[in-house]
Design a protein around this nucleic acid. Structure first.
Lengths: 251, 251
DNA sequence: GACCTTTGTTCATATATCGCACATATTGTG
DNA sequence: CACAATATGTGCGATATATGAACAAAGGTC
């Protein structure tokens, strides 16, 4: 396969980086080969390249990523205006409502956090810029999926691994599509402990100056202190307010 | 130059990603070639590879990184236990003292933020995990540099571009080394508007269970509300408290 | 609109990389 | 302690990639 406009060595290397994850911080050569499907020799060369460049440490047995690897993601976070613009609004919002506020965009079937202002922790999951959640059961994911044509959101649902994180998680594509329609209609999404028991969240879309939905922002709260039914009456207006202010700033 | 254990295509690709930065979010092929020193043809192939894999968008003229690129940095943040362990402590700390709290590690001459809990914004700079600041004039940087042998910290200073961000910025290596000695002695560092006018911060080292300094945490505050001399009396104990709690949790 | 400059694309060839197979090292186990 | 099992290192031929120059296209200037 001789694709003249494709550097497969580069693609393989990126695969190697992605092999490192939450549950696999330290990987030996063979582990990486298995995880990526690359030949051991190839995995080894990529890992040694990473080590040589300072993106990974190697103790002769295991490879561990170094903070230098953050430069790569940072290239996006600092290069993209959205996180910068949104962050101060989130900070203010979080402080006002005394709950965590976040912003995210869609990447395939997942929402990716691009900015976050956290108040006291309510989730077991630790979210930060770059963190990912399945879109179908996250409030911002619902909003973002609802913003696209049905054909596209349905296609993404089909690619998603629809599994119940809690007994309340919606996993039926038909009911999810109905939910998207309602979210689109009402202009916000509320998630009641579908991702994690004890956690509610509400999200609204962020439109740019031309009316295109470019991101979503949300507020998360412990179900114990804020019942799902109260989410909208407490937080919808603050969220909408931020969305309104941001509309003219985004393109 | 035939290095058999080095994938130069991969290294070149990483260079291309790093070409994107704060001031250069949208790059044409020639821009990237100039920024990386690669041949235009090579830069083009790397960029097209990125686009093909979904890490970048291409409109026929400019390339822009997509959020998918965050997977790379996220591989570190989620794979490394430190950010996860520290985050909840920062959240609590920030809430208690009503100021932003952050944690960082050293990467060369820079401190890299690995976790952050922000209260209302005081800096013009927008910090988030992955953000970088020059170590020599940041409170966490001072603490981390002070923790290493003089020969190493001096070497890093020599590599640093020591420039005065404000009239108060220390840039003389000799005085900086003296400052490191004092920081090491007293166990914390205070920065009084050396990075940005109006901003003070105080940092303490985080030791692991074997006494090795693995990171630093800090609190930043507006100079107007918290004069530099008050930083220590207000925030040193809370910071030390967190460091103590974390000591047994880190390795 | 003709000129010049910059940028993007294509192509042939020299060179580097891939993946295989084999050699070696390490780890675990009875 | 020896054996098996698993993991890592290495040389080589086939194959993919980088290079740089030549060409094409776009953009800017007068």
């Amino acid at each position: 396969m001789q694709e003249t406009d494709f550097v497969s060595g580069f693609a393989r290397g990126l695969k190697v980086i992605e092999a490192f994850g939450e549950t696999t911080p330290r990987l030996a050569i063979a582990d990486v080969a298995k995880a990526t499907g690359l030949d051991r020799a190839t995995a080894r060369r990529c890992l040694l390249t990473l080590a040589e460049l300072g993106y990974a440490d190697y103790d002769g047995k295991f490879f561990v990523l170094t903070p230098k690897i953050l430069r790569l993601g940072h290239a996006y976070l600092s290069a993209t205006p959205l996180p910068h613009i949104v962050q101060p609004f989130l900070d203010k919002l979080a402080e006002e409502v005394h709950q965590s506020a976040s912003a995210s965009v869609l990447d395939g079937t997942e929402v990716v956090y691009i900015a976050r202002a956290s108040q006291k922790r309510v989730m077991s999951i630790n979210l930060m810029p770059g963190s990912r959640l399945p879109a179908y059961c996250a409030s911002m994911g619902r909003v973002l999926l609802a913003a696209m044509p049905d054909s596209e959101s349905l296609a993404l649902l089909k690619q998603s691994n629809l599994r119940p994180f809690t007994p309340r998680t919606l996993t039926d594509p038909v009911r999810l599509m109905e939910e998207f329609a309602r979210v689109r209609e009402q202009g916000f999404a509320v998630i009641d402990q579908e991702l994690e028991l004890g956690l509610c969240s509400i999200a609204v879309p962020l439109e740019n100056d031309r009316g295109r939905v470019v991101a979503a922002i949300n507020i998360g709260a412990p179900a114990a202190s804020v019942p799902a039914v109260e989410m909208a009456e407490r937080y919808l207006e603050p969220l909408k307010g931020v969305a309104r202010l941001l509309k003219s700033l985004l393109r």
